[in-house]
């Protein structure tokens, strides 16, 4: 049937790039935090060098991230309303507590770590892990609660968000620790043990992420009308280059190969892989947020 919409109004953007950036930064923060706990909570001592960088990054990123939220809100001066008028069914309400508790926890965690108090560090690290998972997971819920937006309205969204947070977090840690070792350490040599270990974890995380993305997109592709439409937008439409090429090929597959195949795993290559991942995951946030709202609702 020939159908032609002759008139309808244009719709305001719902979330847009600022929120994509916010999601990205919280993801990086959560990922870094979790990595920093590898040694201090899980006892993987070879990752001890990551502890301090991790916690500093986690805190630093977390200072910037909510600023995006405030910039985006129409009435930032009213942010205190979030703590006074609470709605337990609202992910943003959860988020306002998580975004308060998590940084406090990070600060104490860092404080104990720098003081060398292993017990304190472990306790706070243990508390911090679920907080970090939630602080990023809740952003997934913000999207998944949008029931009419097929790309967002998926139970995979929180999981996918955490997976991608880990991916970006690991990449960031890799990059930062390489830079630190190479330029700021005494012997100016890269700690290959950490590099190899992290590369392995990164490869696994990317695989998991790809698996989730594939489940999401393939399901969209055969699901209801709006879902098919958004899948087409991602795969063949307006977002195809960003989604297929930049996010998934350049941002995930290439780094996956570099990290997983020992032959390619030189310091420079891993460095490049990390940068690709860091950019790729930002594009992923962008694709999810903006791609998810491209299809008008009425």
């Amino acid at each position: 049937m020939d159908i032609n919409v002759v008139y309808t109004v244009h719709r305001q953007e719902v979330f847009g790039p600022l929120i994509a950036l916010y999601f990205y930064l919280t993801g990086l923060s959560a990922g870094s935090f979790i990595l920093s706990t590898l040694a201090y909570v899980f006892g993987a001592t070879k990752y001890k060098p990551l502890g301090k960088i991790g916690v500093v990054l986690a805190i630093g990123l977390l200072v910037i991230a909510p600023m995006m939220l405030l910039l985006h809100a129409g009435r930032p001066a009213r942010a205190w309303h979030l703590f006074v008028y609470i709605n337990w069914t609202s992910p943003i309400s959860w988020g306002s507590f998580l975004l308060t508790l998590y940084p406090i926890c990070c600060i104490f965690y860092g404080f104990f770590m720098f003081r060398g108090d292993a017990r304190g560090t472990r306790i706070l690290g243990t508390i911090g892990i679920p907080l970090a998972v939630m602080v990023h997971g809740y952003t997934g819920w913000i999207l998944s609660f949008a029931k009419a937006r097929a790309l967002w309205n998926s139970p995979l969204m929180p999981v996918l968000f955490i997976a991608s947070a880990m991916v970006s977090g690991i990449a960031l840690m890799l990059l930062v620790s390489i830079i630190r070792d190479r330029f700021f350490s005494e012997d100016k040599t890269v700690n290959l043990e950490v590099l190899n270990g992290l590369s392995n974890i990164l490869a696994v995380a990317i695989l998991l992420d790809l698996f989730l993305v594939a489940s999401e997109v393939t399901t969209l592709l055969i699901s209801h009308a709006d879902a098919q439409e958004v899948a087409h937008v991602l795969l063949f439409g307006k977002f195809a280059i960003l989604f297929v090429v930049i996010e998934n090929i350049v941002g995930k597959l290439v780094p996956l190969v570099i990290c997983a195949v020992p032959r390619f795993r030189s310091v420079t290559a891993v460095c490049v892989a990390s940068i690709l991942v860091i950019v790729g995951i930002f594009i992923m946030r962008y694709n999810v947020v903006l791609g998810g709202e491209t299809i008008p609702l009425m």
Partner: peptide, 27 residues
């Protein structure tokens, strides 16, 4: 007086009938 303009409601409404008032910053 209470709305903070976070746009969560705009994301959630299946009909796209909400907007942020450009002068007031509220939904």
């Amino acid at each position: 007086h209470r709305c903070i303009g976070c746009r969560h409601c705009m994301a959630a409404c299946p009909y796209g009938v909400r907007y942020i008032n450009p002068f007031l910053g509220i939904a």
